[in-house]
Design a protein around this nucleic acid. Structure first.
Length: 278
DNA sequence: CAAAGAACCTGGCGGC
DNA sequence: TGCCGCCAGGTTCTTT
């Protein structure tokens, strides 16, 4: 489900609602979501802790709690974090964990496919994996860093590389396909073979796209909702993702779908040509 | 080592 | 209406 813009929208909205509030009670309905520590300890540690601030890196969201506790959340494909008043909560079979705050707000974690995970870390503990995230596309990416990355890791195809969170973090299938379309790059292009001009165009397309995604409240294709349970609006502005068989905005070609790196890949065969290597 | 495939899950959609 | 296969904003592990 959510990529960088969606997680960032959640972070901003959630922080306004819960910053400074204390978690009074936690219930774990489906323990499979808890990655660390054991559920019993997770609940015991988190109860009566105040929420101090929310951070995001790539697609990970982190609630910083008092006593140097950090609650790390990854929504994977269908996770939804929403916040409701206790008495307006409606039953759902996809509700797996809830956190009741002192304000009578309830932070609810829903997940249709149950792929999402939460980890609760204490002082000195680190998540194996999150520390090998590449620079965050929104906060830390620079053109220089991007070019250096392409030079050192660019042996693979650009679509695969952009999806690799240890390269740069935050992009997923939608925003990768859209940024390659907007910079007119074929997804199978070998990354380090991009011309200098294309590298710049791609970098700028990604930055611009993420900003627009955030401005428009994220992209809701299926499950994404913000903390109020509302859909985003950026899906209406996608040019290629999910548009197989539709006419490209160039007016001449029809959008195609192929499979690359196990992911559905949408592109315009006319606008996104492989660079001629001869 | 790059790439493909499978696994983790549930549900929506189109075709027959 | 029912059944079947395909597809899904992600990540990780195994196989080729």
């Amino acid at each position: 489900m959510p990529e960088l813009p969606e997680v960032e929208v959640i972070r901003r909205e959630m922080e306004l609602l819960v910053k400074g509030k204390t978690i009074r009670e936690v219930e774990v309905i489906f323990p499979g979501i808890i990655g660390y520590p054991e559920t019993e300890k997770f609940v015991q540690l988190i109860e009566n802790k105040r929420i101090e601030k929310l951070f995001r890196q790539g697609k990970y969201l982190a609630f910083h709690l008092q006593d140097d506790l950090r609650l790390i959340v990854h929504l994977r494909m269908t996770g939804v974090l929403a916040c409701f008043k206790k008495d307006s909560l409606v039953p759902s079979k996809h509700l797996h964990i809830w956190f009741l705050l002192e304000s009578d707000d309830v932070i609810c974690y829903f997940d249709q496919r149950k792929f999402g995970r939460m980890w609760l870390l204490q002082t000195g503990e680190e998540l194996t994996g999150i520390d090998c995230l590449g620079p965050d596309w929104w906060n830390d990416a620079t053109l220089e860093l991007f070019k250096e990355g392409l030079a050192s890791r660019g042996k693979t195809r650009i679509k695969t590389l952009l999806l690799d969170q240890s390269f740069f973090s935050g992009l997923g299938n939608i925003y990768v396909d859209e940024s390659l379309y907007r910079s007119r790059i074929h997804p199978a292009t070998i990354a380090r073979e991009l011309s200098e001009g294309k590298k710049l165009e791609l970098y700028q397309s990604i930055k611009e796209l993420l900003q627009k995604g955030i401005e428009h409240g994220g992209t809701s294709i299926r499950n994404y909702r913000n903390v109020y349970g509302e859909t985003g609006r950026f899906q209406n502005r996608l040019k290629v993702y999910g548009r197989k068989g539709e006419r490209c905005s160039c007016g001449e070609h029809v959008i195609q779908r192929m499979v690359m790196g196990g992911r559905g890949t949408y592109y315009c065969p006319g606008c996104q040509k492989l660079e001629d290597i001869f």
